[in-house]
Design a protein around this nucleic acid. Structure first.
Lengths: 332, 332
DNA sequence: CCTCGCTTTGCAACCGGTTGCAAAAATCAT
DNA sequence: ATGATTTTTGCAACCGGTTGCAAAGCGAGG
């Protein structure tokens, strides 16, 4: 059915190798045969079969892009950046949705069957066991938005969540809040654990402020709203550092529903700076995570690993900064 | 490096064909050799190479999932459903981001190189030329969220946008609004054109109400906010049917910023019913598009086409319904 | 024990490409 | 024009599987 090398070779009156070579970068073909081949290929509408060539070259240019974050709007941005970035380098993302998968081995099997050249694990909530499993299967792997470690087992690109926790606490204290609180995501998420740690580190150094904490059941609007409602009815703090932006918006909604105002009665600072955070009817003060840089660096890292699979695991962290909007009162 | 058929065959003491057959559904192998092979395969950690087998079988189980909607939160839901649905059927989505691509032929080339078994075009804004190009290249293709046509050139699964436009106009009129308006997405989008048509059809049958219209520059928050701000300063209507939910939220934000209330001063109805629409601080009245059904049906359609490529193009439309929230006043 | 019919097995060709190698052709220096 | 060099070309083997075909193996029936 489809046009193959052979068809083109016959039409152009050359050998199959000649055709192959005109389509391979840096192979030795004379201009004359190249032209003959190109004409024949054009006329027949020939497209080389990337999968067949992968058999001998050992390269598929397929990159497994695996994630379980299909409910956090920030990840649409992440997917957009990843797919474009990969495409720009001639790589194709094979998307794997791990939302209800618990066994890393299944994903390893799947991606091995398709001989992906590399794997990007894009998730802040997925267990490190996944990235590790790929590494053990000898596939180049980068864990984007993963947990920082000084002795990393796999390549990790992301932010320093402990530092973010510190930054948030400092921001609240600098604004003169007396009772500050951490309203985290699920306690099992490493990102929550780290942000919590950083937050409390700073709080402890400031005995004059009171610091409390609680955890929402998920990084979601509903969980944020539920947890903040609970807070408002019991021991309301002056300002909250919420697990992430969606959680923050849920919390904000609870504050408004309770007839309170933000930042008048309650201050809120989020983390991520997703597009929605700057929408005027939300205007969330938040810690900006430099998503484009993280994605770009992840792609760059995975591509260099294609050539140097043995490369020592490294951690690349990007600085975050506070984006001032309207859910925190100004610094006095 | 990797374990191949041959390795397993040698270890099990059988021919390569025997190994191949134990891994092929419905092939003839005795229990005895099957057991031998399975044991050897297990010990070596063998995984059949799906790409190599695709060479002879002509099936890759790869489905091109192509879209340009990487900024509308509803599409995160769409990607979630598509990837899970495909995975559940043993198919792998090869994601293609068409955000800055204008030539369908490039995508056709790309997906041909990877011999995808089928293509799903998931976009409400992409020109029909894309889906058509795939069909002309003899690939099974389904255009999800595409435009309805009574004589379709390709398979289309989606909603009847004209009917939605009618439904919106009727809803506004039933609620007693005297001056109703259509605030569409970009005029070039087929979805906008159709919704506009339906809206105006109904308006014309009601000479007692005044109907005006305008178009935002994109299906985005900012475009909605800009266009609504313009409206408020010139010829403000009593209620608006906005192009989609993000546009509606932008419009809502403009109304609030202008010190007006919704639905008190201005009514708004959106379209899509994305997750955010039900968030309590948004509470958007909107027309619900049955995304899960559309996705499911699209996948079902593309899989049946794998077996019957010549199947006549058909259009599958799903009914929409109004979800009553708080941006439209109640029916008197 | 032999024959018949069915199942299982291995051989070898093939899928659509790539590539090392040696022969052929082109280029260069003399 | 000649020989030495360099470039281009085709052959054939290979990548990791699948599959048609014929031979081998098997159990049943006579």
């Amino acid at each position: 059915m489809a046009i193959t090398l052979k068809d083109v070779a016959e039409k152009a009156g050359v050998s199959r190798s000649a055709v192959s070579r005109t389509f391979t970068e840096g192979a030795s073909v004379s201009d004359k045969t190249r032209r003959k081949v190109e004409r024949a290929a054009d006329e027949l509408g020939y497209q080389p079969n990337a999968l067949a060539s992968s058999l001998t070259t050992g390269r598929t240019k397929l990159i497994g892009l695996i994630s379980n974050n299909f409910h956090n709007p920030i990840f649409l941005e992440v997917f957009d950046l990843f797919t474009r970035g990969l495409q720009d380098r001639g790589l194709r993302p094979l998307l794997v949705n791990l939302s209800d998968e618990t066994d890393p081995q299944n994903s390893v099997r799947l991606l091995r069957q398709y001989s992906v050249d590399g794997v990007i694990v894009a998730s802040s909530t997925l267990s490190p066991a996944f990235a590790r499993a790929f590494r053990e299967a000898r596939m180049p792997v980068v864990h984007s938005f993963g947990r920082f470690s000084s002795a990393p087992e796999v390549h990790v690109v992301g932010i320093d969540n402990i530092a973010c926790g510190r930054m948030a606490a400092e921001a609240l204290i600098a604004r003169g809040y007396q009772h500050i609180a951490f309203l985290g995501g699920p306690e099992s998420a490493t990102s929550t654990q780290d942000r919590f740690k950083g937050f409390m580190d700073v709080a402890e150094r400031h005995p004059e402020v009171r610091a409390t904490h609680s955890f929402a059941s998920a990084y979601s609007f509903d969980a944020g709203r539920v947890e903040m409602t609970k807070q408002l009815m019991t021991d309301r703090a002056d300002a909250y550092f919420c697990g992430d932006d969606v959680l923050s918006i849920g919390a904000l909604s609870a504050v408004q529903s309770a007839g309170l105002s933000c930042p008048g009665d309650v201050g809120i600072i989020g983390l991520n700076d997703m597009e929605m955070a700057r929408w005027e009817n939300i205007a969330l003060t938040t810690i900006r995570q430099p998503i484009p840089e993280i994605v770009e660096s992840s792609i760059e890292l995975v591509t260099t690993m294609l050539d140097d699979p043995g490369r020592m695991p490294e951690t690349r962290l990007f600085a975050c900064r506070i984006v001032e909007r309207e859910t925190l009162r100004p610094i006095p």
